[in-house]
């Protein structure tokens, strides 16, 4: 099991996956907006999305969990 975390503070612009989706390592799962820039957040390893922990429009800090993956 793994979680995908925000690598910087920002606002969740779009959640690109939903529970049940299979994702590959390196795939974009969330698009953050920080300082007027779109920052794609990628899954470091592959898995199945168990839970989406962030909603579009949420403010997140660096290190916050965004998506929980299951093997």
């Amino acid at each position: 099991m793994a979680t995908v975390q925000a690598n910087m503070a920002g606002i969740v612009l779009r959640v690109l996956v939903q529970p049940g989706d299979r994702v590959e390592a390196g795939q974009d799962v969330v698009m953050l907006e920080s300082m007027k820039m779109e920052i794609p957040i990628q899954a470091e390893q592959g898995g199945v999305v168990a839970e989406v922990l962030a909603n579009e429009g949420d403010f997140v800090n660096e290190g916050d969990d965004l998506v929980r993956l299951e093997d």
């Binding site: 910087m8 503070a9 920002g10 920080s34 300082m35 820039m37 920052i39 660096e62």
Partner: peptide, 13 residues
């Protein structure tokens, strides 16, 4: 700019 000088990505804090 408050940003990483190599990747040129934002650096809030």
């Amino acid at each position: 700019y408050a940003e990483d000088p190599e990747k040129m990505l934002p650096s809030p804090g």
